[in-house]
Amino acid sequence: MSMLPSGDRRVDFSDWHRQYYQINDAVIAIHSAGEDTPVVYLHGGGTWHGLGFTAGLTDYFKVYLPHHPGFGLSEDNPKITSVSACVEHYEKVFETLDLQRFHLIGTSLGGRIAAEFAARYPARVSKLVLVAPGGLAVLEHPLPDLSTVAPQDFPSYLVNDMQVLLPFLPDGPDEKFTSMRTRECGAFMKLVGQTGLDNPNMPEIYNTLPRPP
């Protein structure tokens, strides 16, 4: 086993239970809190922006927050080189956790993974919530060319209110923060590098997802 990443020091995990699991020959970190009905949250292209989005969820649900391979506190896994492979990875994760049916939430990259998981394994997902999901091109609202965005301006493209992110951003040079973002960027590109963030089949995938009655 390689040395596990130590994580972002600005993110408070004190109210969460952390466990590590070996899946496909690599160790992943999963945080959980709450009780009763299980909810899985799949994060986007980074793990550095805190857990404020879960406020209130743990009062009603047992919430699981896994880190994708190569992100946050999870080890890199050279076997996972696409979103499709990541979907198969999570099928094994949920089997390991004995989660047969659960609510699934995904944001950005996690939204694409969640949508494709729900389309492939519809019987496993009772409700699906997609927040600014990656993978679905909307012609009326094209994505900006992020390759032209300066690094210092990138956070402003992630939120409407920068005050949400400021507590998690360094106020000066921070070698560890930069190293973790470089690592996560590499993991992100490994997942979407062959196809891009948009999946041309996503409209059809979305149409196959179960709709509420």
Rank of each mutant, 00 (worst) to 15 (best):
L158W: 07
F154C: 09
P144E: 09
T37I: 15
L191P: 01
S6H: 14
S179H: 14
I105D: 01
G46P: 11
P66V: 02
G72W: 05
V138M: 13
D198V: 11
H17R: 10
V159S: 11
G70M: 05
L42Y: 02
G7T: 07
S6E: 10
F154S: 13
V138W: 12
A115W: 04
A26C: 14
L57R: 00
G193V: 10
K127C: 11
V39W: 04
L169K: 05
D59V: 15
D25H: 03
F168K: 08
M202R: 09
Y20D: 04
H17M: 12
D12P: 03
D98S: 11
S108D: 02
T47A: 10
G44R: 03
A55Y: 11
P173K: 03
A187T: 02
T81Q: 13
V129P: 09
Y157V: 03
L146T: 04
V93E: 00
V131S: 04
V83S: 03
V164D: 08
P155Q: 09
P210T: 06
S108L: 05
H31D: 08
S147P: 15
A118N: 03
I105F: 09
D145P: 06
P212F: 07
Y60H: 12
D15R: 14
N201S: 11
L128R: 05
L166M: 13
A118C: 07
A119R: 03
K92A: 13
R183E: 04
P203R: 10
W16L: 12
R18M: 15
V93H: 00
P173V: 15
L165T: 06
G34P: 06
M1D: 04
A137L: 08
G50M: 07
P38K: 04
A55L: 13
V164Y: 14
A132W: 15
S147V: 09
G70S: 06
F117D: 00
G34T: 06
N201Q: 14
V63C: 06
K92S: 08
L73F: 01
A118I: 00
H49I: 07
V129Y: 08
D174R: 07
R183G: 03
Y64W: 15
V63R: 00
Y20G: 10
L99Q: 04
Q152F: 15
I113D: 01
T195R: 10
R9N: 14
G56I: 08
R112Q: 11
E175V: 12
D145H: 06
T47S: 11
G110Y: 02
F168E: 12
E88M: 15
E88D: 09
M202W: 07
L191G: 02
A29K: 00
F13R: 05
V159D: 10
I30A: 00
A85P: 02
L165A: 01
G34N: 02
I30L: 02
E88L: 10
G72M: 10
G135L: 02
V63A: 06
G34M: 07
V192T: 05
E35W: 13
A150Y: 03
T208G: 07
N201M: 06
T107H: 12
G134Y: 10
D12A: 08
F71I: 01
M202S: 12
A187E: 02
Q22W: 10
Y64V: 01
V149H: 03
E75P: 02
G72T: 01
G46L: 15
Q163S: 15
K79L: 14
